[in-house]
Nucleic acid binder design. Structure first.
Lengths: 232, 232
DNA sequence: CCAAAAGTGTTGTGTATACACCCATGT
DNA sequence: ACATGGGTGTATACACAACACTTTTGG
């Protein structure tokens, strides 16, 4: 077996861009670093790839460690390998894009990592090339949510159509017609009426739906048209 | 500055999935390996990331080396990091997706690398996880060509609408209505009439168009609707 | 009774499809 | 003249956006 020169070897890092939605604003889960390098500065949650794990396993490990959750929507977003992106040592970073249901995450665990849910529009500047990663992630969220039903990954198990609408309005920062949005969503056959109502409302109580997971999995990769015009 | 343990370091490879279109069939540019490991077997064109180059530079270098071309449509497709994907040594591979105008490539250079344009449907089994990479690339081609005007990257500078149609029929393996396809493409404002005709035709000579590159660059990331229904 | 939010209905406009028909070219 | 392929026209169906109206709830 041929041996390659070890001088070609580099570190492989994993960085996670973690989105959440609190019913009003889109948020990012960011870490105020306690370790060198860049101690005290803000960054994405990350770590090095371990010798005994695949890339996706590494991302799952990091996300589980931070949030306590296992079944997180998570996909590769990009790889960053610019020569001098990490001043310490040549490091290639695999960036993952994750969507979290905030209220299901372990707030204790988040606090222990010195991590905070920060409104997207109020995020601080991040270390290295993490700012650029976040910009690409926002683009990706807008892109993907227009064509595929990923919005549900940011909501609770049960949700109302007005809640879903507020989410899309936050993602695209545009007002949406309530009536057309409702009809469009109901026509997807993705929503199952739970028979319950949102008791927290002070006016007319909205119907609580849950996702039809069978149909969701079957048709996830089809092209939907949630906000396709927002990308025009 | 903190030092990380060198035991975490891995090799980073670059693999390129290179599509071409000869007017009739979609093709892949594949290499019959002359070096160990896996000498004599088929693989994607690839190499290791050099210490002095960024990822995209590495991909450009490999593509230039093989085809002689510099301005190739090329984007990151995915990263493969499965623990045992390379039996030699732990290697993370960044996979690039490239679209080539076959007739503009340097056939001598291709031949010197023992590379061959092979019809997609007749491709041999490839080494390592390269088969899986190709499957994902075909999916990506179908996905992206439905929404963005990437088909032009596979055609010559000037082309006819019937040629474009044959390309889309090859990508999606479906017949397309000539008249509706023509009107749809003309309505994009992406085509500029060159005033010339395709002299190679034995019947009525089709109009030769070229791409409006200004509009192409401006609106590339908008959502088009070339074959969106093929993904439903 | 009123304000605010949820839910349903209607109508016009534009886009996509399924067709029919005409034109140009070489044999 | 005729077969083959290129180019244009049109009617229909369907999806979407814009708007009006009704219902529920708490105060």
């Amino acid at each position: 077996m041929v041996r390659y020169p070890d001088s070609l070897k580099v570190f492989v890092a994993i960085d996670c861009i973690i989105f959440g939605f609190d019913g009003k604003d889109l948020k990012l889960l960011l870490v105020k670093r306690k370790l060198e390098p860049e101690s005290g500065n803000w960054s994405l949650m990350g770590g090095f790839l371990f010798p005994n794990e695949d890339l996706e396993e590494g991302a799952s490990r990091i996300l589980k460690d931070l949030t306590g959750l296992t079944n997180i929507y998570c996909e590769q977003l990009t790889v960053k390998g610019e020569k001098n992106r990490d001043p310490g040592s040549r490091t290639v970073s695999v960036v993952f894009f994750a969507l979290i249901k905030i209220e299901e995450s372990d707030q204790e665990s988040v606090k222990n990592h010195n991590a905070f849910w920060i409104e997207l529009d109020k995020r601080p500047s991040l270390i290295f090339d993490h700012n650029q990663m976040v910009l690409e992630a926002i683009d990706h969220l807008r892109y993907k949510a227009a064509l595929h039903p990923i919005g549900f990954e940011l909501l609770s198990e049960t949700f109302t159509i007005p809640q879903l609408q507020k989410l899309y309005e936050a993602i695209y920062n545009v007002p949406i017609d309530r009536r057309n949005f409702s009809r469009k969503l109901l026509s997807t056959s993705l929503l199952i009426d739970t028979g319950m109502k949102n008791i927290h409302s002070t006016t007319k109580k909205a119907t609580l739906y849950r996702l039809d997971k069978v149909r969701y999995n079957e048709k996830f990769h089809a092209f939907w048209n949630f906000m396709a015009d927002a990308m025009k």
